[in-house]
């Protein structure tokens, strides 16, 4: 590990230790924050109940669906927009303003339309995640160096071969970074939606525990969600790095 890595680890461990100490000594009231050790023990207890498994399944399946639609759909749409100048001109103002809109303001509307359940969550998360993929795909295809396309023509590649052998690999770094964002945004969309208004899912469980003043359970679940999502994001990140490392990117 690098020097910065060691310092970071020490810092995080120290922060957790300090929090533990502050909670134990009563410097921080248990009505505010529970001690990290208690978060962990409660988490273990919570995970042993099967009801949490159900919530976890709901959340993860919604995320998985939203993520798949966002990645595949975003890639296809990005590709088509890049290919057809007219469509691109028509849509690019939408795309430029897209992430300025606070999407969650439309969540109540989605609930009215689709009812309480997984569908509005999936729609919200997909809408949130897909455009990142569209933008990344377009940016990647835009930046394919022209001389590589000329090289493809010199080798007399067919259109399909040119796309598969030259355009996509050349655009891959951008596309992968869009994929990484789409994964993170799908999690954010689903869990935030569950949190605001939902009948199941991990986000809902956290909100429920908060409403019932069940702090230990709430903190345990927060720890759990942040842990899972960070692990997942790190896995995608590591995968992306492995894909790109040899290019020296």
């Amino acid at each position: 590990m690098s020097k910065a890595g060691w310092i970071r680890t020490l810092l995080l461990v120290g922060a957790v230790g300090a929090l533990e100490l502050a909670c134990r000594t009563g410097a921080i009231a248990p009505t505010m924050v529970t001690a990290p050790s208690k978060m962990v023990t409660t988490l273990i207890k919570t995970l042993q109940s099967d009801e949490i498994g159900m919530h976890l399944r709901h959340t993860l399946s919604a995320v998985a669906i939203a993520m798949s639609i966002a990645i595949v759909g975003g890639f296809v749409i990005g590709f088509v927009l890049n290919w057809v100048p007219f469509l691109r001109r028509a849509f690019s103002p939408f795309l430029a303003a897209y992430y300025a809109i606070p999407h969650f303001a439309f969540y109540p509307l989605l609930i009215v339309i689709f009812g309480l359940g997984p569908v509005p969550l999936i729609v919200l998360a997909t809408l949130f995640a897909m455009v990142a993929m569209i933008l990344a795909t377009m940016a990647g295809l835009d930046r394919v160096p022209r001389v590589l396309l000329k090289t493809a023509r010199i080798h007399r590649l067919s259109l399909i071969e040119e796309i598969w052998r030259v355009r996509l690999p050349a655009a891959a770094p951008h596309i992968l970074s869009g994929l990484k964002l789409a994964v993170a945004y799908s999690f954010i969309g689903v869990i935030a939606g569950e949190f605001i208004l939902s009948t199941s899912g991990i986000g809902h469980e956290i909100a429920f525990a908060y409403d019932n003043f069940d702090n230990p359970r709430m903190y345990a679940l927060i720890l759990f969600v942040l842990g899972i999502v960070t692990l997942f994001n790190m896995a995608v990140f590591a995968w992306e790095r492995r894909m790109l490392r040899r290019r020296g990117a």
Binding site: S2, A4, I7, R8, L11, L12, T31, M32, V33, L181, A184, F187, I188, I191, A192, F195, I196, G203, I206, A207, A209, Y210, N215, M218, Y219, L221, I222, V225, L226, V229, T230, N233, M234
Partner: peptide, 26 residues
């Protein structure tokens, strides 16, 4: 900067809504 950057990037991509109850308690 090197110490902080990965923490910030990780924080950027987690659902921060889950931290809202903590903020409400504080």
């Amino acid at each position: 900067g090197e110490v902080a950057e990965p923490i910030l990037v990780a924080l950027y991509s987690v659902p921060k809504i889950t931290l809202y109850p903590v903020i409400l308690l504080l």
